[in-house]
């Protein structure tokens, strides 16, 4: 070894933001994180934990202690495939999958994710497509996500698309909800946006640095 570098790893109380736990606790399914025993069943059960920077157990432990930065910036929350294995097994009854969703929402709202990272972009595009047609068309969805995140990938992805298209499994003109019903749907979603904007206490989390994801910037927030 040619050189040893020393990294100070101490964490000071003043760096912590305990309100992030309160935010997750207020989310349906997140209320039990305070009874976590740190047994690691979630991390042991998770098919993706071997890829995670922090296992779900560590995320919950850090949440409790207010390590907001580490939690929200964690790559692990994007790896969760919502298979619900942890949720079913958790001896403390924590709905871990819902906790992961809550963390994704916080990260998306605050714009904390790697640039050109496909999962938040996928979520946003998915949402916009739904507001337009009421239904999702995977061809256009994938195309839009790839264009925004990794246009070069179109080159490697086309063979699969072609194979599906040949077999009649690719629909270029998506199925859509009838027009009046589509208007209804948008109206319904709007009610929730405005409803949330008016009757939900603003959270004391630092303001969003990322792009506004919903028209008008009214992202639904969990009650702080």
């Amino acid at each position: 070894m040619s050189r040893v570098s020393f990294v100070r790893k101490v964490k000071y109380e003043k760096e912590l933001q305990r309100d992030v736990a309160a935010e997750v606790i207020a989310t349906p399914g997140g209320e039990k994180i305070l009874s976590c025993l740190q047994c690691g069943t979630c991390g042991g059960a998770c098919p993706l934990s071997v890829y995670m920077d922090h296992t779900p157990r560590r995320l919950i432990g850090m949440l409790r202690e207010g390590f907001k930065q580490e939690v929200v910036e964690s790559f692990a929350i994007w790896l969760c495939a919502s298979c619900y294995e942890c949720t079913v097994l958790c001896p403390a009854g924590i709905k871990v999958t819902d906790v992961m969703y809550a963390l994704k929402r916080i990260a998306i709202h605050e714009g904390i994710y790697p640039r050109r990272f496909p999962i938040p972009v996928l979520a946003k595009e998915f949402m916009e497509m739904l507001k337009g047609t009421g239904r999702n068309n995977e061809f256009w969805l994938v195309l839009r996500v790839l264009l925004k995140t990794a246009p070069m990938k179109l080159l490697t992805s086309w063979p699969l698309g072609l194979r599906l298209w040949r077999r009649g499994r690719m629909c270029l003109i998506g199925s859509r909800i009838p027009k009046p019903a589509g208007a209804d749907l948008r109206r319904m979603l709007e009610v929730l946006e405005h409803g949330n904007a008016s009757d939900v206490k603003p959270s004391n989390v630092t303001p969003s640095q990322g792009p506004d994801l919903l028209p008008g910037g009214a992202v639904s927030r969990v009650n702080a």
């Binding site: 690691g40 069943t41 991390g43 042991g44 059960a45 934990s49 296992t55 157990r57 560590r58």
Partner: peptide, 11 residues
Amino acid sequence: LRVEDTLLGVV
């Protein structure tokens, strides 16, 4: 047995 070794921080 699949387990998270919570003290060592590895699965």
